[in-house]
Write a protein that binds this DNA or RNA. Structure first.
Length: 422
RNA sequence: GGAGAGAUGGCCGAGUAGGUCGAAGGCGCUCGCCUGCUAAGCGAGUAUACUGGGAAACCGGUAUCGAGGGUUCGAAUCCCUCUCUCUCCGCCA
């Protein structure tokens, strides 16, 4: 959520920055609604002040028959307050839902652009692998090795679900452990294992709700949502808390499955593991001091890159443009891994800083020192990495002419020493 | 799932014949004093949000005693609903 005071005082700047995301005007009607609310609030609080004062007087008088007039008067005043309370509540709900649908302001360094075509390549690591034979896509490799069974996944559940078998299942598990060990042992993150279902408040805190409910899997009774990313439960660890300055930065790494409806992507990536309703991900989440958030985004992105480097998978880093960053994001780097089987770079990690946008929604604050007023922290997160897509990258990059797949050296200890999937 | 108990400020913990309770007391913390270090002692301070005024320091108003609703001139205190926690029983990985 944006800072209402900021919008009130800098409406033109806010509107201008939001407009770089493309789409309609976001702030229409804010001024009137905001003003109306404050007027009513003031009138209502004045009445309440009077009621409090008179009620206090009534309380001091022993013989209530002497204050019948006041009691009668206050009865009317209370009635009026009740009506205004109701009116105010409706206004505030309106204002609140209005605010919750406004996306974050793009960071000053986010390139301005309309679509993914305007994203900016920041750096490239490694050479796109050239194989001496015709590279196969991962779904062919996986099926031929008997480690990925898409048909069986469809039988058990439906489209976009997959059964992993044998070395495939083991590889997925190895990747999870490898990534978590790297981030906890070498990058200083604390491992957490959160609930995979969350309530509505948590989804609102990180920005998935109210606007993107159709992207989520939902349980009816009780009303819980399956998490689309560990970002949701992990960021909400500190919802409604005031942290100490010395607590920051807080860095969490979490493995969770992720559940996404993928509504609106019919016909896209229908083959293979790229776009599933359920996939595994190791997520990195940081809570940092505002002055450190820019640097921390670079750190966090580097931590995600390290995974690809250790696995020797070629990739590039893209800075998403204003038209392509997510609703809650101020700035996002995507890591795109090279896939020889499809001859293209595919997103494997998305690292974002949210500024105080999520912190304000979820009320996550800190004090500069003991006596200071609470301020909002900045939150960041990034995939470190999407596990299923990493497995895809390994299959495609490490495939051999004979159909086998080499295991990257860094992963062999996690595979019981296995060097090759045959 | 059945039976019962509970939810108060950073923490602990008072407060039910409704009024002077934003809330006793203790701990913790901050500042000052004192004691040649440490400990003890003394004094003061110590929630958050919204909102009005002010350049600011700051001053004022309103709300908040798990959440929401009700009764009342007035509710932490009475009534209703919900959520969560704990204990016992059952079931279960």
């Amino acid at each position: 959520m944006l800072d209402m005071k900021f919008i009130r005082e800098n409406p033109d700047e806010a509107e201008q920055r939001l407009s770089t995301r493309g789409g309609a005007s976001y702030l229409d009607g804010f001024r009137e609604l905001d003003q109306e609310r404050r007027n009513l609030l003031h009138a209502n609080e004045t009445l309440k002040a009077e009621r409090n004062r008179v009620s206090d007087e009534i309380g001091r008088v022993k013989d209530k028959s002497q204050v019948q007039d006041q009691i009668l008067q206050m009865r009317a005043v209370s009635q009026k307050i009740k009506e205004q309370d109701e009116e105010l509540k409706q206004l505030e709900e309106k204002l609140q839902s209005f605010m919750l649908t406004i996306p974050n302001l793009p960071h000053a360094t986010t390139p301005v652009g309309a679509s993914e075509n305007d994203n900016v390549q920041v750096r490239v690591w490694g050479e796109p692998r050239q194989l001496e034979f015709k590279a196969k896509p991962h779904w062919e490799i996986g099926e031929e090795l008997g480690i990925l069974d898409f048909e069986c996944g469809a039988k058990i559940t439906g489209a976009r679900f997959t059964l992993y078998r044998g070395a495939g299942a083991r590889l997925e598990r190895a990747l999870i452990s490898f990534m978590l060990d790297l981030h906890t042992d070498r990058h200083g993150y604390l491992e957490v294992l959160p609930p995979f279902m969350v309530n509505r408040d948590s989804m609102t805190g990180t920005g998935q709700l109210p606007k993107f409910e159709e992207d989520l899997f939902k349980l009816v009774d009780p009303e819980f949502f399956l998490i689309p990313t560990a970002e949701v439960p992990v960021t909400n660890i500190h919802r409604n808390e005031i942290l100490k300055r010395s607590d920051l930065p807080i860095s969490y790494a979490a493995y969770t499955p992720c559940f996404r409806r993928e509504a609106g992507s019919y016909g896209k990536d229908t083959r293979g593991l790229i776009r599933q309703h359920q996939f595994n991900k190791v997520e990195l989440v940081k809570f940092v001091h505002p002055s450190e958030s820019d640097a921390e985004l670079e750190n966090l992105t580097g931590h995600a890159e390290k995974v690809l480097q250790l696995l020797e998978l070629p990739y590039r880093v893209m800075a998403l443009c204003s038209g392509d960053i997510g609703f809650s994001s101020a700035k996002t780097y995507d890591l795109e891994v090279w896939l020889p089987g499809q001859s293209c770079y595919r997103e494997i990690s998305s690292c974002s800083t949210f500024g105080d946008f999520q912190a304000r929604r979820a009320s996550i604050r800190f004090r500069e020192d003991e006596k200071a007023k609470p301020e909002f922290v900045h939150t960041l997160n990034g995939s470190g990495l999407a596990v299923g897509r990493t497995l895809v990258a390994i299959l495609e990059n490490y495939q051999q002419q004979d159909g086998s797949v080499l295991i990257p050296a860094a992963l062999r200890p996690y595979m019981g020493g296995l060097e090759r999937i045959i």
